[in-house]
Simulated scan of single mutants.
Amino acid sequence: MKAMIAAVLLSLSASMSYASEANIEGVWRTVDDKTGYALAHISIEKQANDTYIGTIIEQFPFPGQPLILLCQKCPKPYTDQPIKNLQVFKGLINDVKQPDNYKHGKIIDPLTGKIYGMKAKLSSNGKKLRIRGYIGTSVIGRSQTWLRKE
């Protein structure tokens, strides 16, 4: 009987730690999918309406290039806004059928000013977030893997 209780408690403990890892809230390091360079740190927060937003809290220049400070090519209301503290994505919701998946977001590329549809998938250990920006359907787009900042 004690062994059964211990097994149940261990199982509950494991599922509770997975649930905390499965949370996308926190700070993530974005990595360019083409160059492998770190681009920024993004803070992801859950809103009162159960959607997630991502805000650039720190940005890094490409080696040998100056840091771009303003979202010059961005549409209104982002036009000429500082990239630091820019809300880079919004509207992302958790897929209740697949808890590690998120969907229906909108993400802006501050370097090009383009806005894309967005979905994301959290790795099983909670340390990687695969972001997909797309036009229309997720087949037409590109992905980045963001790394949880520890």
Rank of each mutant, 00 (worst) to 15 (best):
T137F: 11
I42W: 00
T145G: 03
P63D: 11
A7F: 07
P66W: 00
V88F: 03
I107L: 12
N101C: 04
Q72V: 14
G91H: 02
K73C: 10
G26S: 04
K2C: 03
K149N: 08
K84L: 03
Y134W: 03
G91D: 06
L147Y: 10
P63N: 14
C71Q: 10
G117H: 02
I135D: 03
L86K: 00
A7C: 13
I107E: 08
T30R: 03
F62W: 07
D109F: 02
Y18D: 05
Y102G: 04
V139I: 14
G64A: 09
D80R: 14
M1G: 15
Q59L: 06
T137K: 12
Q98V: 11
A38E: 14
A120F: 06
T112Q: 06
S17I: 13
G133W: 00
L69G: 01
S138F: 04
P82R: 09
K114S: 09
K121Q: 09
A3Y: 07
R132S: 01
A48Y: 06
I115K: 11
R130Q: 07
L129M: 08
R29K: 09
Y134D: 01
I140M: 14
I115V: 13
S20F: 10
S20L: 07
Y116R: 12
V96A: 15
V139W: 15
K106Y: 04
K119D: 07
K73W: 05
Q98D: 08
M16F: 12
Q65S: 12
Q98C: 12
T79M: 15
S20E: 09
Y18R: 06
E58Y: 00
A22V: 06
T79H: 15
H104T: 03
K119I: 00
A48E: 14
G141M: 08
I135S: 06
N85F: 02
L147D: 03
P63K: 11
P77E: 13
I56P: 05
R148Q: 04
Q98M: 09
K2H: 13
L111S: 05
V96D: 15
P82I: 07
H104S: 12
L147F: 06
P63Y: 08
Q72C: 14
M16N: 10
Y52C: 02
K73S: 15
Y116T: 01
V96E: 15
V31G: 06
G64S: 10
C71D: 05
F62Y: 13
Q47H: 04
S43V: 02
V8R: 13
K106V: 01
G91F: 01
A7S: 13
G36H: 13
K34N: 09
I131S: 03
V31I: 13
G36F: 11
L10F: 12
A7V: 13
K106Q: 10
Q98N: 15
G36K: 08
I24T: 00
D95N: 15
P77L: 11
P110T: 01
T145D: 13
G133H: 11
S11N: 10
P66L: 02
R142M: 00
T55M: 01
T51E: 06
V27F: 03
S123R: 06
I140G: 01
K114I: 07
S124Q: 07
S13H: 08
L86A: 05
A40P: 14
I56Q: 04
V27N: 10
A22R: 05
A22N: 07
A22W: 07
K128W: 00
R142L: 00
G91W: 12
G117Y: 04
K119W: 04
I107P: 08
R130H: 10
Y102P: 13
F60K: 12
K103W: 01
K106T: 02
N125D: 15
